[in-house]
């Protein structure tokens, strides 16, 4: 692989040799703009570095730097009496995190909630996406996509709030608040993030494959198991990245409908705010990050990241 544009056919390289200009304009050194353009045209590497410069300064240096600083501070501690930061390396935060029963319970509960939300969304989203992509006539498809997209634009808080009203004791459902309410609300919030990648994956799946499976005698269930599911699996994983990650870090929904239950996000939040213990908050925050990184690493090979 070279630095040339990857769709360029292997023709003559774009040399700067003055190719007999037609008309009156000559490529002779015009203004500085022209010379700059010529340099940029010739040097793909330079073009690339310029294109990458600002984004990499922002995301690569500033953002990654901020993340790194946060995780370094997880190895510090705060003075018990004054509350000041003590910049000495210590594993105390992680030791406390791993040995304290409460934190283990909360971490497991958060992963459980995220997994439950992902599963619920998958079960609801797959049939919906399938009906949209394979059963609906093409004209209706466009409207169905709009119908699924619309709630994404409505505010996150508004939707969580809608469930607060629905679930409140004198509301329409009146089931009350708690962990179940949290799972329901989170599933509701992230459902479109699951539907859309699966829909896109199913849309890419040629109908001819389904027909071939049918012609060869496979029933619906068998076609699903041997054709549809393997080919849309990357899309499913892409959707699950959203639902899992968004649920794992949430602390707002829990506050709105969770009653007194707590997730990892709440522990981080409380340690930043009320307890003013940044090192411990940072240590707790490593838990969802490590889980997400492990998740991303595990699904990289499925090609899911191309489906995001």
């Amino acid at each position: 692989m070279n630095t040339t544009a990857n769709t360029t056919p292997p023709g003559p390289p774009p040399s700067a040799a003055p190719s007999a200009p037609r008309g009156g304009t000559t490529p002779a050194p015009g203004g500085p703009r022209r010379r700059l353009a010529a340099i940029l045209h010739r040097r793909a590497r330079l073009r690339l570095s310029l294109l990458l410069s600002a984004p990499m300064l922002w995301l690569g240096v500033a953002y990654l730097g901020a993340l790194a600083a946060l995780f370094v501070s997880a190895l510090w501690r705060t003075d018990t009496f004054t509350g000041d930061l003590v910049r000495e390396l210590t594993w105390a935060n992680f030791r406390e995190l791993l040995t304290t029963e409460v934190y283990r319970t909360i971490a497991l509960r958060s992963v459980g909630v995220a997994a439950a939300v992902t599963l619920i969304d998958l079960v609801i989203a797959f049939p919906m996406a399938f009906a949209m992509a394979k059963l609906a006539p093409p004209r209706a498809q466009r409207w169905l996509v709009i119908a699924v997209l619309t709630p994404l634009w409505a505010s996150y808080l508004v939707k969580a709030y809608a469930w607060r009203v629905l679930l409140s004791a004198d509301g329409l459902l009146g089931w009350g608040y708690g962990l179940t309410a949290t799972i329901i609300t989170l599933s509701y919030l992230w459902l479109p993030y699951m539907i859309l990648p699966i829909y896109a994956g199913l849309e890419r799946l040629p109908n001819s494959l389904l027909e071939a499976a049918g012609d060869l005698g496979a029933r619906g269930r068998r076609t699903f198991r041997t054709v549809v599911w393997p080919l849309t699996f990357p899309a499913v994983v892409a959707g699950s990245i959203f639902t899992f990650s968004l649920s794992l870090g949430d602390y707002i929904t829990v506050k709105i409908v969770g009653g007194r239950s707590q997730l990892i996000g709440n522990v981080v939040y409380d340690n930043i705010g009320a307890a003013n213990n940044l090192p411990f908050a940072a240590a707790v925050a490593t838990v969802p990050v490590l889980i997400m990184l492990a998740y991303l690493a595990a699904v990289r090979r499925t090609g899911a990241l191309e489906n995001l």
Partner: peptide, 19 residues
């Protein structure tokens, strides 16, 4: 590029706050 939305918002939030 996808990291800021792939990581939980609270992690991005406190990292930026700290920085």
């Amino acid at each position: 590029i996808i990291l800021p939305i792939a990581l939980p918002g609270i992690v991005t939030g406190i990292a930026l706050n700290n920085a």
